[in-house]
């Protein structure tokens, strides 16, 4: 499979999904473009349906200590070369549309993100915990205390 050029991808997304995307060059090893949460589903639709083979490697979520009010979510893809989508959400009411209707394999990754960071995925019937025990009652483990109680 041939690696995708970022410019081609941006052009495709602009034509088919009608949204502008910015290139974020903070990550070594993967090309990243930054989008807003409401652009997520159309962009993924474009990616999954237009190009040769896309494989969702992971959904990486993190909270930066210097920006504690925000969560960063990466959707990491692989198709000949690494490529990611990045978006930022507020910590307290983090909501994202679920993409399992397009990519069923994202199920486990979304469940882990939901239980570890408290992100709510809309469009899913239920989001049961994946790794944490059923009796876990201490909230998302990765969010600092201040942000949780807020």
């Amino acid at each position: 499979m041939t690696p995708i050029k970022l410019e081609d991808l941006c052009a495709e997304i602009k034509t088919k999904a009608g949204c502008q995307c910015e290139i974020y060059d903070g990550v070594l090893g993967d090309q990243t473009i930054s989008i807003t949460p409401d652009q997520l589903k159309p962009v993924i639709d474009v990616i999954f349906k237009t190009f040769d083979y896309y494989h969702l490697s992971a959904i990486t979520v993190q909270q930066r200590k210097d920006q504690p009010d925000e969560i960063e979510v990466f959707y990491n893809f692989w198709s000949g070369s690494g490529f990611s989508l990045m978006l930022r959400l507020p910590v307290k009411s983090a909501k994202l549309p679920s993409i399992i209707s397009i990519i069923p394999g994202a199920d486990f990754y979304e469940r882990e993100a939901a239980e570890m960071f408290g992100i709510e995925f809309t469009g899913r019937s239920e989001t049961p915990p994946l790794l944490l025990p059923d009796e876990w009652d201490q909230g998302p483990p990765f969010i600092g205390e201040k942000e949780k109680n807020g």
Binding site: G26, L28, N76
Partner: peptide, 8 residues
């Protein structure tokens, strides 16, 4: 040093 990296 500060930075982000993805390795597969």
């Amino acid at each position: 040093p500060a930075g982000e990296v993805i390795i597969r």
